[in-house]
């Protein structure tokens, strides 16, 4: 379990309510995650969750180190903040599927270390 091994949790955002993440990237990353043996949570759309102030964002934000496969870091951080679920300054890596290839994004999710400044 990620809590036991100290690995950061992985959250995957599908951006289902708008197609701003390249389909080949989000499909490639999901394919990689679903083929691997690692636990991850897949959500339909963080923007939609923020708009609804979905309580799961609080759980994600408060659950310790996490890697979030989504879009731009600045947008993700403040989406959580807008929902009353601010992310910690450290221990959070946002893997940007709008700018990275599927392979590069998957590699960042697999990496043990957390790059809190990545965008």
């Amino acid at each position: 379990m990620s809590e036991q091994t100290g690995e950061p949790r992985v959250i995957y955002c599908r951006c289902a309510y708008a197609q701003v993440v390249p389909p080949e990237v989000k499909d490639g990353v999901l394919e990689h995650l679903s083929a691997g043996g690692r636990a991850f949570e897949a959500v339909a759309d963080l923007c939609e969750m923020s708009a609804q102030r979905d309580g799961r964002l609080v759980e994600i934000a408060g659950g310790g180190p996490v890697k979030i496969a989504a879009c731009h870091r600045r947008a993700v951080l403040w989406l959580f903040h807008a929902a009353g679920a601010p992310l910690a300054a450290e221990g959070v890596e946002v893997v940007n599927m709008r700018t990275l290839s599927a392979a590069a994004a998957s590699a960042r999710l697999d990496a043990a270390e957390i790059d809190s400044a990545a965008d």
Partner: peptide, 12 residues
């Protein structure tokens, strides 16, 4: 629009 998780892989 569903949130999905695979059970049996740990995690919470």
């Amino acid at each position: 629009g569903y949130a999905v998780r695979v059970a049996g892989r740990g995690g919470r």
